[in-house]
């Protein structure tokens, strides 16, 4: 079992990443709290020793995505709420930010993870394939399709 110091360090370091992943997957704030508790409790009880920070971060991403998927499988969680209810501080988002977020969240589930991991966390397709346990070619396909869909929704051709 990990000590309090280790746990606090992990909470400070990975909370934002977990929060963003929750945003991509979940539909209300209560679920986000559940995911935080599930993921960090798993970390406290886990005996995995990480080779480096990148390895640790990848572990948190994978565990969070799996926890979100498990939660979404539940019948009682499948209700949709407006974006303003998901965010605790919606006022901080500019109209353009809201537009981008709504476009990302409107993508089918399987595209959202790759969009977040590639465009925000800067992971390459092979790295994403290892984190998500998917074939590299599948990841490339998902990235190409999600790019097309986002262009359609948001216009412009700034995506690389």
């Amino acid at each position: 079992m990990r000590n309090e110091q280790e746990v606090n360090r992990a909470v400070e370091r990975y909370s934002n990443t977990i929060r963003r992943l929750c945003m991509v997957h979940l539909k209300n704030h209560a679920d986000t709290e559940d995911i935080f508790q599930t993921v960090f409790l798993k970390y406290v009880l886990s005996s995995v020793s990480f080779e480096n920070e990148e390895h640790e971060k990848a572990w948190f991403i994978r565990v969070t995505i799996n926890a979100c998927r498990d939660l979404l499988k539940s019948f009682f969680r499948s209700r949709t709420v407006p974006l303003d209810e998901i965010l605790e501080q919606p006022a901080l988002l500019l109209p353009d930010n809201k537009e981008v977020l709504e476009a990302v969240l409107s993508l089918p589930q399987k595209y959202r993870d790759v969009v977040y991991l590639h465009y925000y966390e800067d992971y390459t397709a092979p790295q994403i394939s290892r984190i998500l346990g998917k074939n590299v070619n599948t990841v490339y396909t998902l990235l190409t399709r999600s790019k097309q869909m986002l262009r359609e929704k948001l216009g412009g051709d700034g995506l690389e």
Partner: peptide, 19 residues
């Protein structure tokens, strides 16, 4: 660009202190 827009948007999402 769209790339930067996505980055800026997600930058504004963070874990609240209360959480």
């Amino acid at each position: 660009g769209l790339n930067d827009r996505i980055k800026e948007t997600f930058d504004k999402i963070y874990a609240e202190e209360e959480l």
